[in-house]
Design a protein around this nucleic acid. Sequence first.
DNA 1: GTCTATACCTTGATAGAC
DNA 2: GTCTATCAAGGTATAGAC
Lengths: 192, 192
Amino acid sequence: MSIRQATRRKILELGEDLMQKRGFNAFSYHHISSELGIKNAAIHYHFPSKESLGRQIIKNTHERFSKWISHPEHRVLPVAEQLDWLIKIYQYNLEKENRVCLIGSLATDYYTLPLSMQAGIRKLSADVQNWLAQLLEGGRQQGVLSFEGKSRDKALTILTSLAGSLQLARLLGNEMFHKVVEQIHLDLKLTY
Amino acid sequence: MSIRQATRRKILELGEDLMQKRGFNAFSYHHISSELGIKNAAIHYHFPSKESLGRQIIKNTHERFSKWISHPEHRVLPVAEQLDWLIKIYQYNLEKENRVCLIGSLATDYYTLPLSMQAGIRKLSADVQNWLAQLLEGGRQQGVLSFEGKSRDKALTILTSLAGSLQLARLLGNEMFHKVVEQIHLDLKLTY
DNA sequence: GTCTATACCTTGATAGAC
DNA sequence: GTCTATCAAGGTATAGAC
């Protein structure tokens, strides 16, 4: 990425933040332009439409996830630490002024989104789900954790709980997020 | 409620549906008026502002919940059936063209909402949380279900999971909701 | 790449007739 | 209670100068 693309990068960062704090429909080009000290039209130079901006944000998040789970150093970590890594992502959002996760944010906006964004967020959520299901299955076979039922169902239960936690934390206070994480650990009988 | 208030009732019903399908910011008075075959201004007669409409919808949902949990017939039901009743509410939303729950919808919109609506949804979520925590605690003492940790934390884990399920079901398909419900039951070692 | 200027649409809301 | 008419504000987007 050339240094000239600095503005583009800032737009993407801010857009991501706004999507997770306000939702796709509730942020405008003005939120971004005023924050960056530029004008409306400058954003349209980098992203011709709001849809193109949204699509790129989803893509970036997806690529970060894909790169990390396939990274040699990451794949070799103990199951507990890989799970911890996932939870840390949610915790990071919590601490960034109560962002919700991108998937949860776009899921509630889903029926108002352009089709290309709907497809993007579907793919992302499927990948996350598959990855966690495999991780749990491996962990159970190794005996480092324990649970009833199919690993896929357990993965879904955990993911929905994490996504929901970030949302409810806005209403009930951030401590509850940590309580839920504790409970997830308990329910997995996780041994470090 | 007089028969004259039929329009008001329809507005509230449709508004609730729209909030749970599109979110508070993504539905407009036009969505309602065109559906009801009336004009924009007629809605403003019943609800001077969008905020007043949103507030009343939250209030109605809260009252339905409060009335039901304090109803003599309901309080006397077995723990498993009371839990089932809660889950059926979520399932009802799922089947109503993938509504998400009101709390989840307003939680992602939270920072864009009028203060009165923020307060309303905070109160509702606190009441639901307290009720479920007590129910689980009672069930554990009776020995009809079993789990590790505090009943409050377990309640939060289940509620977040249910809320998240309605959202993820839009992306991954409705079957996953039922899987999550199954998993919740498994994790509670619920005995009927 | 960023600006000014502007077109065009949708939104929530109000005034006043019926 | 509902209508017509109208408004101001805010939204996305484009054209063309610099």
